[in-house]
């Protein structure tokens, strides 16, 4: 059951990493969005896959009648989705502001924190 999704997840990771290794901010952002999805699916699949039975308890019972999908990874992934979205938004705005301030969308040209020709550290006591 998991094999097909596992291969798909590998493909997701490949595309995400490939995009994140580019020079353009936009492509990096796209990569981050896909990376979030791939990690979520990785966690989800780790908890094993069960077809079509949500982890709900019928109104007249105290435990589900049949085996349901694993609720634990679902709970983990649910918050992960929202948080990864929040951070995607944060990174998006960060990239947008960086582009505005620095005038470039190429990451290798953003050298404010680590200037190209940094002076040597002071010697002495």
């Amino acid at each position: 059951m998991e094999a097909g999704v596992a291969i798909l997840i590998g493909l997701f990771f490949t595309v995400a990493v490939y995009l994140m290794l580019s020079k353009q901010l936009v492509r990096i952002l796209l990569g981050i969005a896909i990376l979030g999805n791939s990690v979520n699916m990785l966690i989800f699949t780790n908890g094993r896959l069960t077809r079509e039975v949500p982890p709900l308890i019928p109104p007249h019972l105290y435990v589900p009648e049949t085996a349901t999908a694993n609720p634990l990874p679902q709970a983990l992934v649910l918050t992960a989705i929202v948080i990864s979205f929040s951070f995607f938004a944060f990174l998006l705005v960060l990239a947008f502001r960086a582009y505005q301030e620095l005038g470039t969308d190429e990451v290798n040209k953003m050298r404010v924190a680590e200037p190209e020709h940094d002076q040597t550290p002071p010697q002495g006591y």
């Binding site: 949500p54 709900l56 109104p59 649910l78 918050t79 929202v82």
Partner: peptide
Amino acid sequence: HNEPGGGFIGGL
């Protein structure tokens, strides 16, 4: 609490 839904989905 009893059916699919909750604070995260509602909030979104």
